[in-house]
Design a protein around this nucleic acid. Structure first.
Lengths: 119, 119
DNA sequence: TTGGTATGCCTCGGAGAGTGAGGTATAAGG
DNA sequence: CCTTATACCTCACTCTCCGAGGCATACCAA
């Protein structure tokens, strides 16, 4: 029995959703964002730089984000802001996410009378 | 604007969760299961054979499923049943799934006063 | 008989996401 | 001066999933 496969993953594309959402609340630079994600998820998620930076670049290339280089106290950062297009994308992604979650939750609770669980 | 990246995916490892759950409700063979998933998800998901069969094999190798060849009317099938170990795995995965979903939903609705949304 | 369709299993190649480790550069502090 | 923290980036690897293909049998029709 060699397997094990690591702790269950789930998720996919979720980093993008979170990035879009957090940046829509407040513009941030990459390094800051990576730590903000950990805080916002109470350490439940911790996406690495190798995950977030590419997401940032892709979103910017798609016009969903607008990155601007700023230098503060000798520290050079690239602050990202969500564009109008990005907000649309966030909107859509959030809706798709919720639909998927509902579908799965329906399957998981099917036949589970006596456990209200879901609000 | 070359991108597009397909409709948002999300999910990952979800097929396994669904397989475990559906099989725990009723033993099925692969082909049947694949169609059951489409029905159960109202066509929202449609995992292909190239996804499901490997999942089945892996779960069996892990001892979470027990596959038994049965021949009915000349048709040979491999019916999978969830083992005790498999139920444990389902339990764990379901819990992990819910936690993840809650975390993400919290971020998505954060600061959205005036929209109760969550129950 | 021959052929098409449905059942039922399987696997391979490829695309993308995410991890972990690495590499660069500057600033602050001992 | 050297380490640590900040701040960016990228590459190699693994894993998942999709799409397409292959195999074999059963049934039905021409």
């Amino acid at each position: 029995m060699p397997t094990a496969r690591k702790p269950p993953d789930f998720l996919n594309g979720v980093p993008e959703l979170i990035v879009l959402r957090l940046l829509s609340q407040k513009p941030m630079y990459g390094y800051e964002l990576i730590q903000a994600i950990q805080v916002a998820t109470s350490r439940n998620f911790a996406f690495g730089e190798g995950c977030i930076y590419p997401v940032l670049h892709r979103l910017e290339a798609d016009g969903a984000l607008n990155g601007r280089r700023e230098t503060v106290q000798g520290r050079s950062r690239i602050v990202y802001r969500v564009t109008a297009k990005g907000r649309g994308r966030l909107e859509q992604s959030a809706v798709a996410w919720k639909r998927s979650v509902e579908v799965i939750q329906a399957i998981l609770s099917e036949g589970n009378r006596a456990s209200p669980a879901m609000a």
